[in-house]
Design a binder for these strands. Structure first.
Lengths: 391, 391
DNA sequence: CTTGGTTTGTTAAGTTTCCAAACAAACTTG
DNA sequence: CAAGTTTGTTTGGAAACTTAACAAACCAAG
């Protein structure tokens, strides 16, 4: 029954039509009322009336007249979105740093700040308040907050079920934050918001089926299916790091899963690469995976082997994902992509060879900003506001 | 923009509300008008009026009065679906046999026949005609055909893009069949329809996130996400058989993918089990994987090793799927499940140990009927008819 | 430079749908 | 049997969309 998106009442019908028009404008702007009517299959009358309201609300503006039609006739009045009609604040809470941005309706970032991660809410809220105070926007146009957290998040009520790296368990983040800021707050997993971000203004723009994989300390994956974020049944979709890419592990792998790390993570994440290398060269003094990459670039064969191994697992994981969800594009992000030159070519080759379909593999365009921007996108997608149609 | 399921016009709004009511009746029948109004949030007035129409159309019937309310008051008139108001024909075209059923709106199979697979359309159509002629239903109540095919199928226009086992390429099955029978036809991949079937009247009943895996000659997987069949971007989702469950394969596996078989299939399908066994005992005279199972039951160690190996790959594939899509339940079907006693316990154990979440694993309830029933379900789900809401 | 054809956007009348409120029907309980 | 309660229907009205006619703006040909 959940699949019935119904506009029960005439009022709901109107709201949906308004959104449809807004979405059409966003996609084709600048565009005339007549063209909108043709595209949406609404009558010109209805389009005109709803647009009057949108103009009134300041969401849309008239931007001059267009070219005259082919065979003579009145010139169309062109319409565009008022991109600064509203703003959203996106907060990406990562394992090591927190990125906060404010962006407008078209996804342009107006201001951004990065601080080291703090896991207590009071400090976080204080800092957000400070950030907002310095933001160059009229605060009354801020319509809400989106938050990405490194853990399993129940979107429905904005509860962070578990975020080990922050020590959070069953934290009612949405409730707490709404109580403090008196604005709607939407909370999602950090990889999921990164996927949203790339779909909004990054490597997944315009695509309806997108897989975003981030490889860093953990390995996660956000799925956009049929244009919608797919969350899974227990809000735990996209646990890429738990894939088993060596069937031997079925019987013989005994690392405790309870730590919250999966098989693939234990083979291909940054800590895994580091650990493998430490073990082989018997040098526990190396403390950053970056060193391993540097050494490989300088010809260290052991480093090469370790990285090669990790690559194989990641490639297998990508092939598995492509086989299962048949995306339009796979986007790779995360810290490991800083060394993409060592990774990408071979992965692309393997996927091309073994996946059932040819899927494009791209690198994140937004990099570290993807999460925060996507968190903002979350508000525009989910919040029931006049601007909901713009995304 | 595809995500806007809009009821543009008042007429569409009415149609959606009617479906909403019908779906509510199906789920909670027998139920009163008052309860429907409460559940759907529609006014009693509206509910009454739409139900009058449904009664008129013969889709719904009044089935006596219910128990009197707690504190006195008029007794409710209870409503139920007229399950035989319409029928659908489901055809499951498998690699070796074609199963055809006719079922009513509640998914009860009224008649069923199985014939060996034939791949030319003329014979197929003739046979369907023959089948319909003998079916114990008024033919004017048949509302459409659903067809499952063993290949990649573009649902939109019912084109079978490729079905190697039948020798079909770019076959416009929907068009051809509609021309012949003058009824709507919906075409889907066979594993996908099996998943629909299990969700309708099988092991996935009432679930919104279901993964159905069938292991036989090929290995495929149907995904029901958020209550909807997920088809992927190129109509090629669920290619479970293409997973890579041994990272070594990334560099070293050289079987040509062009044959249409994937890595996991080459390790765990029936032909794979047979071939591995043949190779190890050097006896090409064995021609059915069933023999391998029988021998293992009688203590043949080589057979045991081969099967153990296959099991590992399947388990890894399931873990990967669970990790990625976070389903409510995983349903296993296909020929290999005839020997489920040798397979299931260990797979369940492995998944429990290595998957990020605890997901129930069940065996297909419908067995060989799942595909045909699901093909019928396809019509009720997709076809724009008064009964669309019942599923 | 005027007239006819064309396209855009608006106005006015009409239809469809849903809803709130009042009402009739049917039932329980004291 | 009267009072209270719940169900389902009737009635009048509000909200939304649409068709059709119209005004405005424009081009181009004579």
């Amino acid at each position: 029954m959940g699949r019935y998106i119904v506009s029960r009442t005439p009022r709901a019908m109107k709201r949906m039509n308004k959104r449809l028009i807004l979405a059409t404008i966003r996609e084709k702007q600048p565009i005339s009322r007549a063209d909108i009517a043709e595209i949406t299959l609404l009558s010109r009358t209805t389009v005109s009336q709803l647009i009057d309201e949108l103009l009134e609300e300041g969401v849309v503006k008239e931007t001059g007249t267009g070219v005259s039609p082919t065979q003579g006739g009145r010139r169309p009045v062109l319409l565009s979105i008022v991109e600064d009609a509203a703003f959203v604040c996106g907060i990406d809470i990562g394992g090591s740093q927190i990125t906060t941005v404010i962006c407008n309706l078209s996804g342009r970032i107006l201001c951004k700040e990065v601080i080291p991660t703090c896991s207590d809410l009071l400090s976080l809220f204080q800092w957000v308040e400070h950030f907002l105070g310095r933001a160059p926007i009229p605060t009354d146009r801020l319509i809400g907050f989106g938050v990405g957290t490194p853990g399993i998040t129940r979107f429905e009520d904005g509860m962070v079920l578990s975020a080990p790296s922050l020590g959070w368990t069953d934290l009612p983040l949405k409730a707490e934050m709404e109580r403090r800021f008196h604005l709607p707050v939407y909370v999602e997993n950090d990889v999921n918001v990164a996927a949203l971000g790339e779909c909004w203004r990054g490597a997944g723009e315009g695509k309806q089926h997108v897989v975003m994989i981030t490889i860093g300390t953990g390995i996660g994956c956000g799925l956009i299916l049929n244009g919608e974020l797919y969350r899974g049944c227990h809000w735990a979709s996209g646990e890429f790091g738990f894939m088993v890419t060596d069937s031997q592990a079925i019987d013989h792998w005994n690392d405790p899963v309870v730590t919250g790390f999966g098989y693939l993570e234990s083979r291909a994440g940054c800590p895994a690469i580091l650990r493998q290398y430490q073990r082989r060269v018997r040098n526990p003094a190396i403390t950053d995976a970056k060193v391993v990459f540097d050494r490989w670039r300088r010809g260290d064969e052991v480093a090469g082997q370790v990285i090669q191994e990790a690559k194989r697992h990641v490639a297998a994981g990508i092939i598995n994902t492509v086989a299962l969800v048949d995306p339009e594009v796979v986007i790779l992000g995360g810290r490991l992509m800083n060394s993409r030159d060592l990774f990408l070519p071979q992965i692309v080759k393997s996927v091309k060879r073994l996946a059932p379909i040819q899927t494009e593999i791209r690198v994140s365009q937004l990099g570290a900003d993807a999460g925060a921007l996507g968190a903002g996108a979350l508000v525009l997608r989910e919040h029931d506001c006049p601007y909901q149609g713009v995304l």
